[in-house]
Design a protein around this nucleic acid. Structure first.
Lengths: 194, 194, 194, 194
DNA sequence: TATGAATGAGGGTTCATTCAT
DNA sequence: GATGAATGAACCCTCATTCAT
């Protein structure tokens, strides 16, 4: 399998850097190849085409988010705690990798609808875990049991996403992590069972 | 002034349709011209370049959102009522113009950071009005007076945005307006002063 | 006749200035029109097309050279004197109109062969007068009676042309007129009957 | 280095032919590519842009003139002999390559001032060698020791240039080489020390 | 596997010219 | 005659992808 070979991740890491620094459309295959220290043609031994690099990159990075979230779900005390830890994790992974933040929040979206659908499919697994947390909270009385799970998920994810995108658009000028408690407080307030 | 001439809006409407149907990067100037019923060169009598069409389009459309919101602010009973009506308006304008929804939620984002900044600058006026509503609610006891306005704004706008984008990505398969009450309920719950 | 109407010369003078300042290919019809204070379309009431402006411009300006030279031929003492006065005239007209010098020496040549042929046809009349001077000198013993008139004419005109072009290319940094005596001395020495 | 690769000269030779046959502005990159038997994009592996082809072409071709002239300077008997051989060489190289003559005398001049300056810079080396010959002749008594070298050079080069341009404009209808003795005779007569 | 020279399709933009007023 | 808004043909260059080595 390609992803077990060293050059696969080498190219993906190069793509994250190159795309974050130059923007998706300004990042030619030759730039990624140069950054990765391989020839242009070598890229095509590991990826079908340029779009495939983006998809694979997102898949690999989402894997971290998902693995972390799975562990959070196993160790969290309750739904509120799990949601809180999920937000902490989401923020801290990106706060620690600004290149990746730039790519996921800005560059990845510069793609046509077809590519967006593929990205959404990958995101699905992550959002399903979020749904599980929400349902758990609805069933055990932490969250409003009558709320629409899809809308609740969209609020949670939309808020996280907008918060991070603003931080990226503002050139990381303030601490993302400082916003985590405020975000959690507002969201949990919105979800809670009155 | 350009925007008073009939062809200015004619080209913008054509651009909305062409971009919604083909995607921004797949929409050649010639496609917009054809859709507008003018020659390619005519586009350049009204717009500096392709990017300027996108910017102008967004500016003209945001004008509607802003004007509506200004009226809502003048006529709303209180902050909660104003926020509720703002969401209704935002949803209904886009529910009634799916082409525009596609452009604002998907195609407009397929632009480099520089263009995104210009778009954000235009959006600013709308978000400032939202901030005014939030502050009003914080001062009169409707909303949590200790919350961070920026984060609250990001929750409100992020939720609205994510909700609409999902609807577009799902090919308008369900009613966007049916989600409005759920969205409002969750958001107002999150903001309210306990 | 067009050339008797005031706007005809007005456009030609505007063209000389605009072309000298911007270069032939950078001089759009609209620039000439603006410089002339007329509408773009008005240009086409007086000239067939852009090329025709260039041709007409050259024709009108050559008329001055030719009229002056005709008078010189009538008043000059002998062939050497006439040649000397021709050079003086040629240099002084352009020394007094640097815009025109730029146009004739640089911009006018940025044209295809077809246009060059038309320009040459206009130049012909001037060169014929030069030939007359040369022949007169050959017949009365001033100039080498065995020389080839065409080659002699090419030496005289080529030297004048190269001298002026160098002056233009050097941004008029030195006095063109100071070179006239040197040019005359060398040329007359070359032509003279030993 | 680019110029050591076979395709570099292959493209230059193709450019000479294509430009001579169609004119500079009528010669699209695709025409040169076709003539050279390469793809359009390949041109850009060897040349920065269209203008760079013209510059490089002139540089490569001037190299021949300069190398020949350097040998002439080393082997010529005296200044008059060297000048005579220089003219022979200049005429014969172009007489044997009419495409090149068309390009240097007509097409190369269809360029803006900036390009002309670059061309002049390349020509400089050749004209410097000419200056050396003239100075040698002035110092050893062959040429008028009081003449202005710049003006003398302009006479020599201007005469050569005009002679060849006329030959090209007349569609090579007569023998260029037949004119060489006449040109030499006139020029040497003009330069000589009386 | 790895290379990198070669390919060639594709499009935003300019501007000379026209023509309805 | 005069206008200037509208036209639409034309082209340089980029860059994702291929393939012979």
């Amino acid at each position: 399998m390609n992803r077990d070979k060293p050059k696969y991740m080498q190219i993906i890491e190069a793509a994250v850097i190159a795309i974050a620094e130059n923007g998706y459309h300004q990042t030619q295959i030759s730039k990624i190849a140069k950054q990765a220290g391989v020839a242009d043609g070598t890229i095509y031994l590991y990826f079908k085409n340029k779009e495939d690099i983006l998809i694979s990159l997102f898949k690999e990075k989402m894997r971290v988010f998902i693995e972390n979230l799975e562990e959070i779900i196993q160790t969290g005390a309750n739904a509120s705690d799990k949601l809180s830890k999920m937000i902490d994790n989401h923020f801290s992974v990106l706060a620690n990798n600004k290149h990746l933040a730039t790519v996921t929040q800005l560059e990845l979206r510069q793609s046509n609808k077809e590519l967006r659908l593929k990205i959404n499919a990958i995101l699905k697994e992550y959002l399903n875990l979020l749904d599980n947390i929400l349902v758990e909270g609805m069933m055990n009385g932490e969250f409003n049991p009558t709320m629409d799970v899809r809308v609740a998920r969209q609020m949670v994810f939309g808020t996280i996403d907008e918060t991070i995108t603003s931080w990226v658009m503002n050139d990381f000028r303030y601490s993302l992590l400082d916003n985590a408690p405020k975000v959690k407080h507002l969201l949990l307030n919105g979800l809670k069972n009155n």
